[in-house]
Design a protein around this nucleic acid. Structure first.
Lengths: 148, 148
DNA sequence: CGGATATCAGGGGTACTGAAATTC
DNA sequence: CGAATTTCAGTATCCCTGATATCC
């Protein structure tokens, strides 16, 4: 790409969008190599950290839409990384539980995504990477807290 | 959204994706209020800064796909903000030129997007906003330069 | 001829919406 | 009854590819 117009280059919204595209590409390439998708990692991470949960709860924790959560849980269940079982206490719910294979898968995907972070932020020093993560976290928090 | 899993919160790729979603939402809301789209601003900015150009060149400068460039130029031409004329030197090309109305429109959209930046980065101090833009610019440059 | 541009048709992924069925 | 959860069907936008026609 040629040099972009100054009015674009200076805008955070444009930069974030462009960096997000590179991030998407690197992430999907890395995960495709192990036959996984980004949502797989998100869901497994939520189940490992917070324990078994309904699909609704998983979606809220990961920021995944209810429709998409359903499809992704299906894929993970087909691969044996989670188990879907009806909740005996509240039969509207399904309880999703991570399996031992799912835990291994989570660690595998975490390693892949760690490498993706290094590729994505290769131009920054370790201290700068932490600073970028901190700044983005504060921006994100400010928008997610106001929703509630 | 509830608190996301730590494995997600710490990853730059995940943060960028989430922030990008908020950015998209704020930007589209702001632009929709004046009946515009993000690509309109990009194209007008490129024409104003670099002068009349073919659709191919505009696309390269703004990072817009050739198919989308065509449709967006159509919209801008319908609104009288640009003029499309065949290039007398090279009749494969269309030369796109910004109009006076287009220049006014560019300033209008720039003001809207300036407000969007302030909303998006409301949690950060002016110095932190500059730092974030600088970090993102370096990340972006490192990925766009290697492509060539 | 090869190479470049513009145009059209359409695919694929992601985020999202509406509505039905079930259960609390 | 209203509210919550799951599930399915479908929409919208964006990014991208393939193919064709035209012209250098």
């Amino acid at each position: 790409m040629e040099e972009a117009p100054a009015r674009l280059r200076g805008k955070a919204s444009w930069l974030i969008n462009k960096v997000s595209l590179h991030s998407h590409r690197l992430r999907n390439e890395g995960l495709a190599a192990v036959d996984a998708r980004a949502y797989h990692f998100s869901i497994l991470a939520a189940l490992e950290e917070f324990g078994p949960a309904s699909q609704m709860t998983i979606g809220q924790r990961c920021g995944i839409d209810r429709s998409d959560t359903h499809a992704m849980v299906n894929e993970l269940a087909d691969q044996g990384f989670v188990v879907r079982a009806p909740d005996t206490m509240d039969r509207r719910r399904n309880v999703i539980t991570i399996t031992d294979a799912g835990r291994k898968r989570l660690d595998e995907l975490d390693a892949v995504l760690g490498q993706v972070q290094r590729q994505l932020l290769a131009a920054l020093s370790p201290a700068e990477r932490k600073h970028l993560v901190a700044l983005l976290s504060r921006v994100l928090d400010s928008h997610e807290r106001t929703v509630t």
